[in-house]
Nucleic acid binder design. Structure first.
Lengths: 195, 195, 195, 195
DNA sequence: AATGAATGAGCATTCATTCAT
DNA sequence: TATGAATGAATGCTCATTCAT
């Protein structure tokens, strides 16, 4: 019960952080804004987080862990690298497409700081890229994917393409579904644009 | 002469802005830092720019204008859409690859703010994306590119792929040449990953 | 029994206060520090004291009451003012010399606030000074002490001399016994420095 | 001119610091209070001092330097140790007696922090005590003062006696002249209280 | 009586911007 | 034009105190 309350309050602050950071940007958000949005006093934030930075940090950590966990599970369901890439694309776009605010924080706010980028890219982000690379490599080894392409470059391309879909979706004024783009991306990525 | 001095000083502040923002991040940079790096007094910055934001703004505007101008010129040299995409990729990577600090500001700092992203994407950035899209469309019209792909999606993929190359290059601890990746990107984008 | 527990807890908090205030200074000490050192919850402190100030207040009150009580008892054992001054000096230095932490709070922390000084000097401290003054007066009346000296000035001198012994002892990096200085002080105070 | 303005502003902040710290105590004073009392903006304080601590520090440094300088000069005017002690006493009391606010800061605020006490006592304060000790020693060597008293103890007594005069004067509700007490102090210190 | 989670007022410090010179 | 001293609004964080349990 008490345990639950603690988790609830932490969760509330985290959600409030996502919301506020998405709306106003990390640097323009005040801790007081987050506290108010979470329905707690300013000081309470510091009972659950070390400071403003730690909130952003925690948003990233939690989401990325879920993300990667689900990604791995998804991959195990299939042996076909092409299928696996399709799964990754779907998951990537459906996940971020389902939570616009989280997507904003991921696409915009997390990159606003070399500090964060360096700290994070080295860890969780690199892991995500590795998953894509391994999938491509196994496709090459199986003779399904061409061998004259560096897997790491292809992986970055794939990730970059998905990433750009999300960023554009966020910045777009017209609402549209993000997930369906997964198919398009995979189609071009695997088949090429040439006729 | 006086004219020249004015241009020189503005240029100096702009270069100093790129340098300082790249090093410490936009939000962590002080106007005083930029002024010192430019060799002028704090107040002088305000004779050439409206404020801190305007410096970042101007960095973007100037670079983007050059970028787009050169892109257009490059495209006119060829009639082949595939060649044209290759030219764009080379230009994109060689330009940013030639000025790491500018690249950092573009990839990292400009995105740290929804405000900037929204303001800029709507203008110059959209134009850049349009150029890519038009190229792809003309390829489709000429029957060189497959027609079952939405040109705007393909354009975003292409841009996203290039963008990711740059971001990774910036964050990488090992130095390597960025431009050569243009060929790889185009190869996969046009030919597809499938064997 | 319950009575005893209450006294014990109050005592524990008081001792913890002395310890913590001596170590970190009153203004730099947190109520939470005192609570932790006393082995009670933060809120418990407020069941025994009105607030942080009241802890310091109570430290002073209790120690001063003991101090004065013992002083009076000591004085009654002798009729000779010179002996009596010697007793006061010994008591003063042995008492504070026996409890370095208490001494630190008395010499340093209690003085860090005009508010406290004013509030306290008017009460218990003045009483202590009175005792010394009365002793000196009775010496003058008995013809043992010279009459051309204002007793209150002499009393302040005596107190100031003892006080300085304690302050120096606290700040000294080398440990030494404080009490033995009582004899020196009395010797000079009564006999004068002149040869 | 500019030079003068700078010195004036620093001086104004220093005086304001003495005033405010004396009135409300160091820990209860806000930098904003000092700034307002000095007639400058809050931020201006930081153009002249590193922070709140540095103001207190500087008050002490400046006053102590003057104090010691004047003390040395005074001592050179006489060869008689008894005269010299009288001079020190007069200077001590007249100096602090002439500036009640400065005296409050010296007697009360500077002692409110073990940190300050330790840092300062080791330096300037020790020097002051040395001057007194040397004077006493020379008196002993000249056979004017008794030799069976440790000079350092006598010096502390003398300083402590003067110090107590100042503290009592500050805390007293009735105004009276401080300097005249110098004679009394010296009389007792040299001649002893005994009849 | 005891707890300790929650509160929110309070404050030192920073820094973008202005303006008298 | 250029300066840089001065400004003062803005804010992350602390911690004494409260109160529901």
């Amino acid at each position: 019960m008490a345990r639950n309350n603690v988790a609830d309050k932490r969760e509330a602050i985290l959600r409030a952080g996502i919301k506020v950071f998405a709306e106003k940007g990390f640097f323009n958000s005040k801790v007081a804004d987050v506290a108010k949005a979470a329905g707690v006093a300013d000081g309470t934030v510091y009972l659950y987080f070390k400071g403003k930075d730690d909130i952003l940090h925690s948003i990233f950590d939690r989401a990325m862990a879920e993300f990667i966990g689900e990604g791995r599970r998804e991959l195990e369901r299939s042996d076909d690298p092409a299928d696996q890439l399709a799964k990754i694309a779907e998951l990537h776009l459906s996940r971020l497409g389902a939570d616009r605010e989280l997507a904003v924080v991921f696409q915009i706010e997390l990159r606003g700081s070399t500090k964060f980028m360096e700290a994070f890219s080295a860890a969780a982000f690199a892991e995500y890229l590795q998953i894509i690379r391994k999938t491509i490599e196994s496709g090459q080894n199986a003779g399904l994917f061409r061998g004259d392409v560096k897997p790491i470059v292809a992986a970055k391309m794939f990730y970059g393409a998905l990433d750009e879909m999300v960023t554009n979706w966020i910045l777009s004024k017209k609402p549209y579904a993000l997930e369906p783009l997964a198919g398009e991306v995979v189609k071009v990525f695997l088949g090429g644009l040439k006729a």
